[in-house]
């Protein structure tokens, strides 16, 4: 019923599926600060899109979507522009090193399995660490409070956090952190390297790196990461364009869905606390890891459906949380209004 002709890919495709895929990945992207290539590419491919066009079209829509999401995050004060701009320089160099490494592995004929095993290690490692971090947060907060109290009783200053203060130090007012330029550059070089090596946008690596290695608040990590994704998306859109791999009509339809989804995802950040975002992200990353493992064991269809179901499930959770938060906010506003009317 909604079939349209896509001239570049030379095929008929259901427009509604494109808008729906765009919408779900828009929600995830706006909420987690990731591009979502690891969801869209297998989803498009599963619905019959040729792989080469799936990658290029995906990157084109990511560029448009990240503009929508970054604009909204910026309005909410969640984008550290200074940190984002520095991230681009480190990431570009890192991506180049990673890509050259892949070329070397390809020459040896072991690129596929090596990349997939690193991918699995990264996804499971990251997911499990973030789950552990979430489950032990109260214990750590209590231990820190006890340390501060003990120091106060002894009349000493609270123990300083351990950090590497090699000059030059840079202050990031939006994130409220002061950190060595070398640490920031090193982190972005590393995350860029991994994204070049794994062939992904890098959002799912950079977002936790901003939290755990640089010390950003979660919402700022999400917004700043999206700001960086904007540049990698623009680069990806252009480079795949000149390589004749972007189906523009499909990208536009996906962007329409993704733009609406991104608004939903970003607004949900307002209602879910930082650790809540980390918990959902950890679950999503582990599910993506399971999907990659299935692929490694040649279960391609199961792998594609796994990642799509995980994305749709997570999408539903985010929208329910957003609805609950919105209703609560409305009820609180109504409560205040009644109080103000009563003498």
């Amino acid at each position: 019923m909604f079939d349209i002709y896509l001239p570049i890919a030379g095929m008929q495709f259901n427009a509604l599926i494109l808008v729906a895929i765009g919408f779900s990945v828009g929600v995830l992207g706006g909420f987690f600060g990731v591009g979502g290539a690891w969801v869209v590419t297998p989803a498009l491919n599963a619905f019959g899109f040729p792989m080469a066009y799936a990658i290029g079209t995906d990157l084109a829509h990511i560029f448009g979507k990240s503009i929508v999401a970054t604009a909204k995050h910026r309005k909410m004060g969640n984008v550290d522009m200074k940190l984002g701009l520095i991230s681009i320089v480190g990431s570009v160099i890192g991506v180049e090193i990673g890509a050259r490494n892949v070329m070397y592995l390809t020459k040896l004929g072991i690129a596929g399995p090596v990349v997939r095993y690193i991918y699995m290690f990264m996804l499971f490692g990251l997911g499990i660490y973030m789950l552990y971090d979430y489950m032990t947060k109260d214990k750590r907060a209590a231990a820190q409070a006890a340390k501060v109290a003990a120091a106060a009783r002894a009349g000493l200053a609270p123990p300083a956090k351990k950090s590497w203060n090699l000059p030059p130090m840079i202050h990031f007012p939006a994130s409220g952190i002061t950190i060595s330029l070398w640490t920031v550059s090193g982190v972005f070089l590393f995350t860029g390297y991994l994204s070049g090596l794994l062939g992904v946008g890098g959002g799912f690596i950079r977002m936790p790196a901003l939290i755990y290695l640089i010390g950003c608040p979660t919402a700022i990590a999400v917004g700043t990461d999206l700001f960086s994704v904007l540049f990698s998306g623009a680069y990806g859109c252009f480079t795949y364009g000149i390589k004749a791999r972007v189906e523009i009509i499909a990208a536009i339809l996906m962007l329409v869905g993704a733009a609406i989804g991104a608004q939903v995802g970003v607004t949900a950040v307002k209602y879910i606390r930082g650790y809540g975002i980390r918990l959902l992200f950890a679950i999503m990353v582990i599910l993506a890891g399971i999907s990659v493992s299935l692929k490694q064991f040649q279960l391609n269809t199961a792998s594609q459906w796994m990642v799509m179901c995980a994305a749709l499930g997570m999408c539903a959770v985010i929208m329910i949380k957003l609805y609950q938060g919105f209703k609560k906010e409305q009820a609180e506003k109504a409560g205040y209004a009644v109080k103000e009317v009563k003498p």
């Binding site: 560029f63 929508v68 604009a71 623009a234 252009f238 795949y240 523009i248 536009i252 733009a259 609406i260």
Partner: peptide, 21 residues
């Protein structure tokens, strides 16, 4: 073609951001 695609996606993203806001 690549330039049209990149500029169009950027402009569309920007316009949708304004309208949905």
């Amino acid at each position: 073609y690549a330039t049209i695609v990149t500029v169009l996606m950027g402009l569309l993203g920007f316009t949708i951001a304004l309208v949905t806001d």
